[in-house]
């Protein structure tokens, strides 16, 4: 959702269309970057914004469904164009309290 929020307020989007994703990577950090890059690719080529995700993770493999709608320049006023997920400050780890931290710098 953070990826959408840098472009537009996600609450202004309608989950009218669904896109399927699947990614595999050697480790969880590369998997996070791969997943975000897959979303960015769909945003760029479909001219699309996502507002709802369902993600399943098993052993460095990810399958996901995402819902959203095509960009409407007049209604959405998109601010920036995400270009790619980078490996800068890329972290996926479980914290001592049991929660998970997934962090990635996205180039815009």
């Amino acid at each position: 959702m953070a990826l959408t929020a840098i472009v537009v307020d996600p609450q202004r989007l309608h989950p009218s269309e669904r896109v399927e994703f699947s990614c595999n990577a050697p480790d969880d950090e590369l998997l996070l970057a791969d997943w975000l890059n897959a979303v960015i690719y769909e945003m760029a080529t479909r001219h699309f914004l996502f507002c709802r995700y369902r993600v399943a993770l098993v052993n460095h493999s990810l399958t996901a469904q995402a819902w959203g709608e095509p960009v409407d320049l007049n209604r959405h006023h998109p601010v920036v164009e995400p270009k790619g997920a980078t490996y800068t400050a890329l972290v996926v780890r479980q914290e001592t309290d049991g929660s998970w931290l997934a962090q990635c710098v996205v180039d815009v």
């Binding site: 590369l30 970057a33 791969d34 890059n37 690719y41 760029a44 270009k83 790619g84 997920a85 490996y87 180039d107």
Partner: peptide, 15 residues
């Protein structure tokens, strides 16, 4: 977008 996609893909392959 083309340059970014090339950079992203080769960065992963090189890493």
């Amino acid at each position: 977008g083309l340059g970014h996609q090339i950079g992203t893909e080769f960065l992963r392959e090189m890493a």
